[in-house]
Design a protein around this nucleic acid. Structure first.
Lengths: 344, 344
DNA sequence: AAGAATTATGCGATCGATTGCACATTGTCA
DNA sequence: TGACAATGTGCAATCGATCGCATAATTCTT
């Protein structure tokens, strides 16, 4: 008993400080709030601060939240925490939020809408002030839940087709154009595309970017297979299908680095060499893809900045609920490495 | 005004449900709590549940926390969210916590003790029920803050020298022994070690593991350089120093995959080939190291399971504050790939 | 049938910080 | 000097769920 009780003994409430300082707790509260301290006489402020320090007072964020209705908490929902792509995004979000005094409630929602919904409900019950979703499908039922609940929400990395909420995504169309132009510049004419899942904006937009860029170059943009998920295994399967359906390809533009790595595997399985037989371009510039063999030429996405931008957008909306919805595109950048070479 | 107000219009309090159902709010509370519903007549339970559903009621976790003193929130502090090693740990922690109805407050504490302390204070002010620290130094001032505040705390991935708190770490000594024994088995005799920072348990224990295993094999364990941080750049610098100080090495056991990758870079710079000239073993089995050239032989750590175990240990302690402090070792496993080969 | 035991529900204090309003004190100006 | 403003502080309601205790209703004993 004793040990547990004394361990939890966290006195130091506003009340206890006020008593010790001989003032009312509301006065103590004001003295400790930098924004209100000027309304209180300097001597009292000093006395209260000293007492707070002495007692090791820490304002109870929970009690404050209950009263004010704001928790200074933001929920962040990711589709897969283990996927290295999301760590830097999370990092960016966290950094921008911390700067503004907000904390992150992080949850892995998986790819299942029902589970994501359950998680979002849980976050809402915790009275998060806002949400960042990295899980959005092109038409996302989870977002509906968020909006219905009146919780300011921002999408990151993936967006919906229609702008119901602000979003920050990479400029997928442009990124894929850079990839295609690079390949075309190297002399490639028969270029295939490993597309991402249909339900995700990244999958669709990058595919559109591929098609547009191919047409712009006067090339046939029909060598496409769609992967069912962003994973190596699906990438390998899709590559196999692509190579079978469109023989004679000399280059592949993948919608995602993991798909590109799957392509590496399938090429190796068939005894083909990259880049000698087939050039490959990825998308994302995941950590370590500069050290694989061959180093992957890929489209770099500013993940951390994307996360930061999303958080800032959310913070703006929290400050002003009537802020415009805006869709922000982050610039994509082609990173040249060893997986592409000029057509012999 | 109107839009903001109506957007935030989240009625549905216990009170509103109770009124609509014609009962007292305490009755409604009990009817909605599975653990107490049996004390209430089935008809009332049904009526209340129906009403809750109709109004879209969600219990306010904040208000509940204030009253009960438990937030069902656990703070998780990481040294570097962008480091791919921590994502799976976080994933494991999150999964185990979610199962028990807890949520994660995630914060990147960096490597600076002052900043980590500030973050922990913030988490404590948010009344987290417990903390998971992945940042521990061998003697960690931040842990002192946690313990002084009476917040149950568990260390993960890195532990202190003395067991002030429960911890879950990989069996670093054994892992390094596996690496050395593998190299010795391949015929290597002149083996160097890239050690991690002195201040981290992983750095010291793996180094001890290296020394012990070398001595056990009757070999000289003095070819060691200590990296200042776990990064490729420091790994490259340390490798340069190691090769200069101990010419004739045929193998290197690194304390960490990033250090091993730094070694790759330095070998390449010197025109040496891995594994032909020098074999390299890493530690951690980070994502993608199976696809670099050459694929890295490394000691796999069960990151996700480590996170899960840490969370479970914390949950146990939350359930029973007098639970024993325990230091848990997760088994390490050698993964054979292409960066090591038999001495010619 | 009186009393005991059990069950169902209501009551109201409580957690700790916040904040609109009231009150008191002092200063200012005509 | 009387009316008025400015300033500093106290008062008490409030946020919403929880839970010990009280009370009412019901069933069980003997």
């Amino acid at each position: 008993m004793k040990s547990a009780a004394s361990a939890v003994a966290r006195g130091a409430t506003l009340q206890s400080i006020a008593e010790a300082a001989g003032v009312h707790r509301s006065t103590a509260a004001r003295a400790l709030d930098p924004a209100q301290a000027h309304r209180i006489s300097p001597e009292v402020v000093e006395k209260v601060r000293a007492e707070a320090l002495r007692q090791g007072y820490r304002r109870d964020a929970i009690a404050a939240s209950l009263r004010t209705g704001r928790s200074r908490l933001v929920g962040v929902v990711l589709p897969d925490l283990a996927n290295p792509v999301f760590a830097p995004i999370l990092d960016g979000v966290g950094a921008a939020l911390a700067e503004a005094g907000y904390s992150m409630l992080v949850a892995d929602g998986g790819t299942d809408a029902a589970r994501q919904t359950a998680i979002v409900e849980e976050l809402i019950a915790r009275r998060v002030d806002g949400l960042v979703l990295a899980t959005a499908r092109r038409s996302d039922s989870v977002l509906t839940v968020c909006l219905d609940a009146g919780v300011p929400t921002v999408l990151v990395n993936r967006a919906e087709d229609l702008p119901r909420a602000s979003s920050v995504v990479s400029d997928d169309i442009c990124g894929m154009r850079l990839a295609v132009e690079h390949l075309v510049g190297l002399g490639h004419r028969r270029i295939g595309h490993l597309a991402g899942p249909d339900g995700l904006s990244t999958g669709v937009l990058r595919r559109q970017g591929f098609e547009a860029a191919m047409r712009a170059a006067g090339l046939d943009p029909t060598a496409i297979t769609v992967a069912r998920a962003y994973s190596r295994a699906e990438g390998q399967a899709a590559t196999a299908a692509l190579l079978d359906a469109a023989p004679g390809l000399t280059a592949i533009a993948a919608s995602n680095d993991l798909l590109a790595l799957g392509a590496y595997l399938e090429l190796a399985r068939r005894g083909l060499s990259c880049p000698h037989d087939i050039s490959i371009v990825g998308h994302n510039d995941m950590p370590l893809v500069d050290m694989i063999a061959p180093p992957l030429t890929t489209v770099r996405i500013a993940h951390a900045q994307m996360g930061e931008a999303a958080a800032r957008l959310l913070l703006e909306r929290l400050a002003d609920p009537d802020a415009e919805i805006c869709a922000r595109l982050m610039p994509a950048q082609l990173i040249l490495r060893g997986s592409t070479q000029a057509l012999r």
